[in-house]
């Protein structure tokens, strides 16, 4: 991975903070001249926050916003939301069924994602999808609590648990 300049990473952090600030503070009921004050305050605070945190926020700075990555990210959203809805019906079934159809266990799977942000995104996706919850990531090993263990084999379990996610996240983060 090539080195990205600090200014670039700083600009990325600043952009992220100012966008969050504006969506949280803007309201149509505020007059434009009043909003200017809020905006200036936001710029000052974003600059401070970005200066404190840009080293941790991203390694690639504005290159995160390349059209290819954004395209794959938007393609990923429906996949993720659909998985989440399935997960909730799965939870509903296991909670409400009188027989308690559970067979829990902790399995280990491996990933070939390298980027830390990508690994985090995969862990979050796994937690929010049917029956699985990430417990720990050590290098490329994920320890996953599975509410109904279908396979104890690393590879097979990995294919079931990760499903489509890894393909998308690889495009977004690598």
């Amino acid at each position: 991975m090539k080195k990205v300049s600090n200014a670039n990473r700083f600009a990325y952090a600043f952009l992220a903070f100012i966008i969050v600030w504006c969506t949280l503070t803007f309201s149509p009921r505020i007059k434009p001249d009043q909003y200017l004050e809020e905006f200036i305050g936001g710029v000052v605070i974003s600059l401070i926050a970005a200066a404190l945190s840009y080293k941790h926020l991203s390694q690639r700075g504005l290159y995160n916003l390349s059209p290819k990555r954004i395209g794959w990210f938007f393609a990923y959203i429906p996949v993720f939301i659909w998985a989440m809805i399935k997960a909730n019906f799965d939870v509903a079934y296991r909670v409400l069924s009188p027989k308690k159809p559970i067979k829990p266990g902790i399995v280990r799977i491996r990933t070939n994602l390298k980027n830390p942000a990508g690994k985090l995104a995969l862990a979050n996706s796994i937690t929010l999808t049917p029956g699985t919850m990430t417990m720990q990531i050590i290098d490329d090993k994920y320890y996953i609590h599975w509410i109904y263990v279908q396979s104890e084999d690393e590879k097979e379990a990995g294919d079931i648990i990760k499903g489509e996610f890894e393909k998308y996240l690889k495009e977004v983060f690598e």
């Binding site: 266990g105 902790i106 399995v107 280990r108 919850m133 990430t134 320890y143 263990v149």
Partner: peptide, 30 residues
């Protein structure tokens, strides 16, 4: 999800046992 993982890991490290019907625990090896 991050909160959930942190809580689950913390309770594992603290020694909370898995339910008796659990079938596998690979984390113990680690």
């Amino acid at each position: 999800p991050i909160g959930a993982s942190a809580l689950a890991r913390a309770s594992y490290k603290h020694g909370v046992k898995l339910w008796k019907g659990s079938v596998v625990d690979k984390y113990k090896d680690e």
